[in-house]
Nucleic acid binder design. Structure first.
Lengths: 344, 344
DNA sequence: ATTGAAACAGACAGCGCTGTCACCGGACAT
DNA sequence: ATGTCCGGTGACAGCGCTGTCTGTTTCAAT
């Protein structure tokens, strides 16, 4: 099958190649009848525009890059997060005709910024989606903004920087989870806070405090333990809490990994979940459904956030330069087996 | 910073643009001294070749596509697999200057083949890496081979088709795991088989049987339960095995998800792992280290396999058309907490 | 010194599209 | 009847590289 070019289509349709180009690119000012003639020719010849030629002539790469923290930098990879973001981003890419490049990178690395600059110079993407926690690393955000490449940040936590962003309602849903636990009769609800460098996760502590207040419960310092988002820190927190003289009846962890750590320790200490202890997490990673009892948690709409981010990029390509503010995609409470009424 | 073009570099270096091109593309027949002059000019101007122009002129896209089964098609996403493959593929891409496109797709879908053909026509990749289980779906393999795009299959199970492939030694390491369990004194070792559509997983049953024989143990039909790779099927298998009159002292599952299912049931039935029951899995997914007790399993070298696959593609680009046969990357036994000496 | 082959360098013509601008013809106003 | 505007279309010149082919230099072997 010899590949058809735009010239073949133009000839078959009896128009100039420029008109074919206009049809392919959905440009205005083509008579409906002409458009159809061209479409037919395209179908008949199974014509596909040559991306390289198009990119060269249009000065666009029709490429977006999704940049996220390299999972291999951690003890326990957060693969689920990445894959869900990729799915969302890909879905949106297919609506325009953009391709998606993925770029894991380590933000602790000395030269993230120059690495990213090199990436941008090499592939010249039409836009970038920057996932948390990179989305609140000033060095990274700055490096990208300096190149002038359109940037959408995902879950930046604080709304610093001037590029647009997409986020979820961490604070609100954390409050909701806290109120849910309170509604089950729990009075002593502990919280395992996450790595404060991850801004979005930090917001969850605020939400927890909101929730306590809204439920008429008092916040107690000894019930808030600092973690670092890892399973291990969840274990450490649980050990501290469960071996204290007056242990909590519910533990809400700022992410599922830490919640899993809590459950491991409860299991080891013979504390029955959920009969003696309710455990709740946050994120809804795959593990949440894999462990026993299945974890009550909050589904973070990663896929929709990434999709929204790419759609914002596509919009910005269309010259629509009016910044339309952040997009907030709400999370959903997933009530499963690890939470139950407080023991009396 | 106005972007430098090849003309600028040529002028600064005092050579023709063709010579600059030769240096950039590491072509032979350039005097060392000339090469240096050009390199200096490139550095001074921070020149980056324009991919679109290069692709257009060279009739190459400098793009590889990694195609894998869409994880969202399943109950429990196998995100870890995907991310590890991506990591390996990306690593190899960086050694050449190739970019990687990812393409999840559902192989149960009616039109996988036409979907893939469209993908290929659209992006015109220089090569494709096809991951299991798609790598043994004739319709998919056929569709790709028909386009003439270089194809490397990962873990195709059977060596059908004529394109090259990369695999691991499923059969051998399964035998090894079985021998390990036997060496711990286990006499009744059960096996939870996986979805036979996933060829590589099917090989593990063979390995289990090899291992029994090598350890002088007899294979017993009632100790081999059919599963379908899901947690649920692991649970069902475990229920069947543990509630039988003469339960096994060790259960080896063909993948970690099923092993996790086994452990959930053991937990529920009050069977202590590893004291009363040893459990072993296969794949080394993240979950293996997240659950308690941590799962003894086999690390499947996904990242290295994907890397090897892309390296094969790069080699094939270099005109090296001599098919050098399959590449086998061996797996590694990961002995953790879920296996121990047989109870007496 | 002479020769031939191999190493090295450049001129030139595209690759297959899009941006720009010029052009044509009909609707409408003058 | 003439001018004006604008939707619709095409001619043409590149976009920034690489492939091909041709020319020039180098150097070992006569």
């Amino acid at each position: 099958m010899p590949k058809a070019t735009i010239d073949d289509v133009a000839e078959l349709a009896g128009v100039s190649i420029k008109t074919v180009s206009r049809v392919v690119n959905r440009e205005p000012n083509v008579r409906e009848q002409t458009r159809e003639k061209v479409q037919n020719a395209i179908t008949r010849l199974n014509y596909r525009p040559n991306k390289a030629a198009r990119n060269l002539a249009s000065h666009h790469s029709h490429l977006f890059v999704l940049i996220y923290d390299d999972p291999s930098a951690y003890e326990v990879p957060s693969a689920g997060f990445i894959v869900r973001m990729q799915q969302g981003a890909l879905r949106a890419c297919r609506t325009g005709d953009y391709e998606l490049l993925i770029h894991p990178c380590r933000y602790r690395n000395e030269n993230v910024d120059s690495e990213i600059r090199t990436l941008i110079e090499r592939v010249r993407p039409d836009g970038i989606v920057l996932a948390a926690p990179l989305s609140n690393v000033p060095r990274v955000v700055g490096a990208i903004e300096a190149t002038g490449t359109p940037l959408i940040r995902v879950s930046p936590g604080k709304a610093n920087g001037d590029s647009q962003y997409v986020a979820t309602n961490d604070r609100e849903f954390s409050a909701e989870m806290t109120r849910y636990l309170a509604s089950l009769g729990h009075k002593r609800i502990a919280f395992v806070a996450g790595n404060p460098a991850h801004e979005a996760v930090a917001n969850r502590l605020e939400g927890y405090l909101d929730g306590l207040e809204q439920s008429g419960l008092e916040a107690r310092d000894e019930l808030v333990i600092k973690g670092d988002n890892s399973i291990r820190s969840g274990e450490a927190a649980a050990a501290l809490l469960l071996e204290s003289p007056d242990p909590p009846t519910a533990i809400f962890a700022a992410n599922d990994d830490m919640a899993a750590g809590v459950m491991r320790v409860a299991n080891r200490l013979g504390v029955k979940v959920p009969d003696q202890l309710s455990v709740a997490g946050c994120d809804d990673i795959a593990l949440a459904q894999q462990i026993y009892p299945a974890l009550t948690t909050i589904n973070q709409p990663l896929s929709q956030m990434a999709e929204a981010a790419v759609l914002k990029l596509i919009k910005s390509q269309r010259g629509n330069n009016d910044v339309d503010g952040p997009t907030i995609v709400p999370g959903t409470l997933m009530i499963r087996e690890s939470t139950a009424a407080a023991p009396d």
